[in-house]
């Protein structure tokens, strides 16, 4: 993009750039990627806050708390991270033109996300400390809660895209919403890996 703009008539026309709005160019993906980069800074802020508080703490765990159980969360994590694979499969089916394959794997991804959320809720219920129990409790619920909010958003976005897949002709010109949702889902997974390392692996 150094000397000629993407709108240069000599450049090859970009089909994705001409979306549904009456021929107005559609830059949803560009905007969405920028949004994700910006969103990652909030997590970065929370991560660095957590690290700073943990490093400077004299007594990190509240009295009577042993630490976090990690086996069940690990299983949940494996489910969530593998859902990045199933969503990629769903996209591959859509690319091949198989809408039913797309819907099946898309639905599977949603189910895996929901399984993760339920596991998270169960873990919260079994814990002996609350949100206001020192910085340990505060950061734990803040980080997992904020991430869980993103998982829930991702499932809602997927539900929306699934409904849209039943509108005839909706995916004919390529669907930026599906790509964007899938990017969002990968983003949520990568954040979780970092979160898991920070919360459960780092003692």
């Amino acid at each position: 993009m150094s000397t000629s703009s993407p709108l240069d008539p000599s450049a090859a026309p970009d089909p994705a750039a001409h979306g549904e709005h009456g021929g107005h160019p559609n830059f949803t993906l560009t905007g969405f990627v920028i949004f994700l980069l910006s969103e990652s800074v909030i997590f970065l802020a929370f991560f660095s806050g957590y690290t700073a508080l943990k490093l400077s703490a004299t007594a990190w765990l509240p009295s009577g708390v042993e630490g976090l159980e990690w086996q069940t969360p690990l299983i949940n994590s494996v489910v969530l991270v593998s859902s990045s694979g199933t969503i990629a499969l769903a996209e591959w089916f859509k690319h091949r033109g198989s809408l039913w394959g797309f819907r099946a794997f898309w639905l599977l991804t949603m189910a895996m996300g929901a399984y993760f959320l339920l596991g998270q809720a169960q873990e919260w219920r079994s814990l002996s400390f609350g949100f206001t129990d020192g910085t340990f409790g505060g950061t734990f619920y803040l980080l997992t809660g904020f991430h869980g909010l993103h998982v829930a958003t991702g499932i809602l976005l997927m539900a929306l895209m699934l409904l849209k897949s039943f509108l005839p002709g909706n995916y004919d010109g390529g669907e930026q919403g599906v790509v964007a949702t899938s990017l969002f889902w990968h983003f949520v997974d990568v954040i979780w890996i970092l979160l898991f390392l920070l919360l459960y692996v780092w003692r």
Binding site: I34, L37, S38, E39, S40, V41, I42, L44, A45, F46, G49, L53, A57, T58, A59, W60, F131, T132, G134, T135, F136, G137, G138, T139, L142
Partner: peptide, 30 residues
């Protein structure tokens, strides 16, 4: 795009300290 999310994150923690009673910025709670 780079800076505002950090401020928003910090402000959320401030709001939680003010209303919910967390201790992110309160030395008595670490």
């Amino acid at each position: 795009l780079i800076g505002l999310p950090a401020l928003t994150g910090g402000a959320v923690m401030l709001l939680l300290d003010l209303t919910v009673g967390t201790t992110f910025y309160d030395p008595t709670g670490g």
